[in-house]
Amino acid sequence: MPQFDPTYFAPQIVWLAIVFVVLYLLMSRVALPRIAEVLEARSTQISHDLERARALKAETDQMVAAYEAELAKARSDAAGIIAETNQEIAKKAADRQSAFGQDLAKKVEAAESRIGKARDEAKAHVREIAVDVAREVAQKLLGKAPDAQAATRAVDDVLKDAG
C-alpha cells in the first residue's frame, strides 16, 4: 500500500504543517472572530429587543389601567347625573301636578258659582213664566185674566209648596 511507502512521508508532513498553520491563522484571526461578532451582535440585538418589548408592555399596561380608571370615573359620574336628573324630573312633575290641582280646584269653584247663579236666574225666570202662563190659562178658561199681583201671589204660594 502506498501509505507505507516512506518516499513521500516528509513532504506530506511538511505540507500538512504549512497548510494547517495557515488555516489555523485564517480561522483564529479572521473567520472565527467574524462569526463570533455576528453571533454576539445577534444576541445583543435580541436582548435589546426583548427589553424594549418589556418596556412597551409596561407602558401599555399603564395606559390600560389609566383608561380603565377613567372609564370607571365616567361611569360613576354618569350614574350621579342620572340620579340627579331623575330627582329633578320627579320634583318638576310633583310641582306641576300640584299647580294643576290648584288650578283645577279654582276652575271647579268658578264653575260651581256660575252654575248656582244660573240656577237662581233660571228659578227667577220660572216664576215670571209661571205667572204669565197662569194668566194666559186663566184668560182662556175664564175669559178674563186675573191682575198680575194676584197671579204672582198664587204662583208664589204654589212654588213655596213645591219647595
Binding site: Y8, P11, V14, W15
Partner: peptide, 15 residues
C-alpha cells in the same frame, strides 16, 4: 522533502 504532491494539493484545496 518539500515536494508539492497531489496530497499537498488536496490539503490546500480543503483549506
Amino acid at each position: 522533502a518539500v515536494a508539492f504532491t497531489n496530497s499537498s494539493l488536496w490539503m490546500v484545496i480543503s483549506a
